[in-house]
């Protein structure tokens, strides 16, 4: 056998290397192409909505109720509904999710119950959203008698994003070094003082990132809201939470029927007339911009956070 560095062998090796490098190039091209296709898809998606929807995006579109006449229809009740439901969702999901995350990360003993809770949270994150809709239909709408209300919808979406908030809280808490906790304990702080004075404030930005991602998800959720039976024609606003008479705040809006942005959009997509589909495109544009802004904010926060960590 010829030695490895014999010219014949070297030539053979060069041929092999050249062959393999072709594969490298091919993989590179495939990767870039796949990314390009993803970008093109996004451009097509965004572009088609801009072309169809942009002319409809006038001030009146935001201040009008839905209507049988497509050119008069707007998204007033939808964006008000979405805003109110997000309030309920955040009010329920943030305290519960953060508390659960704190428990699992700081308090939970290593035992069977903890393990069950942890497995459960991961599994809940994978349950299809429409199943949450069925849960809400059976539990909130009928058994608790909350009806097809803003409260029902807000709580449903809160359950849906609970795993996101829990996981984000745990990750944010985990990034705080043990030495900070020991520093507090060594001064005589109790566990709760350590958590509330140090762990939570220092992980607030990370938790906020998760909450924003969760709410961005909730804003676009359609299926569970349809399931609780909320696809109705809503041409009025719920009573304002702030009243001009004593006691100045009212919670009556919680029990009112509602519509939300994605439902309104779905409603318009299902109409055969093209004019309604332009309304759908306009509503979709608003929805996409809203979610992109929220997710973008979360990504930016996370980026800032990574840059600033100095533990």
């Amino acid at each position: 056998m010829l030695p490895m560095n014999h010219p014949d062998n070297l030539n053979e090796i060069r041929t092999i290397i050249a062959y393999h490098k072709r594969w490298d190039l091919l993989a590179l091209v495939a990767g870039v192409t796949a990314l390009m296709i993803a970008i093109l898809t996004f451009i097509a998606l965004f572009g088609s909505m801009v072309i169809d929807g942009m002319p409809r995006l006038t001030w009146e579109f935001f201040t009008s109720f839905p209507s049988r006449k497509p050119e008069a229809a707007g998204i007033l009740s939808a964006w008000v509904g979405t805003t109110l439901i997000m309030l309920v969702t955040a009010a329920a999901a943030v305290p519960l999710g953060v508390a659960a995350g704190v428990y699992l990360e700081e308090y939970a003993p290593k035992n069977l119950i903890t393990e069950i809770i942890e497995i459960n949270v991961t599994n809940l994150a994978g349950v299809p959203s429409i199943i949450y809709g069925l849960l809400a239909l059976g539990l909130f709408v009928y058994q608790l008698g909350l009806g097809q209300s803003i409260l029902s919808a807000g709580l449903t979406l809160a359950l849906l994003i609970l795993p996101i908030v829990i996981v984000a809280t745990r990750e944010a808490i985990r990034s705080i070094p043990v030495s900070i906790r020991e520093g507090a304990y060594a001064l005589g702080a109790t566990k709760w003082q350590t958590v509330s004075d140090h762990v939570l404030p220092y992980s607030a930005a990370g938790i906020l990132t998760g909450v924003i991602i969760g709410l961005a998800r909730a804003i676009g959720e359609t299926a569970p809201i349809i399931t609780i039976g909320a696809l109705t024609f809503i041409a009025f606003l719920p009573p304002s939470p702030i009243q001009d008479q004593f006691p100045f705040v009212s919670f009556q809006w919680l029990m009112e029927p509602f519509t939300v942005m994605p439902i309104q959009m779905f409603n318009w997509i299902s109409r055969p007339q093209e004019a309604f589909q332009h309304n759908a495109a306009a509503a979709g544009l608003v929805l996409v911009v809203m979610t992109l802004l929220m997710n973008g904010l979360a990504i930016y926060l996370r980026y800032r956070l990574r840059k600033n960590i100095k533990w």
Partner: peptide, 30 residues
């Protein structure tokens, strides 16, 4: 109670991400 009377300084400096004043005041605050 023990830790309130017997305090500790660690291997690596572990100041809280707060102001200088608040770091020193923390033990008093709790």
């Amino acid at each position: 109670e023990v830790r309130m009377r017997i305090s500790m300084v660690f291997q690596k400096p572990n100041p809280f991400p707060k102001s200088i004043f608040e770091n020193v005041a923390y033990g008093l605050r709790i």
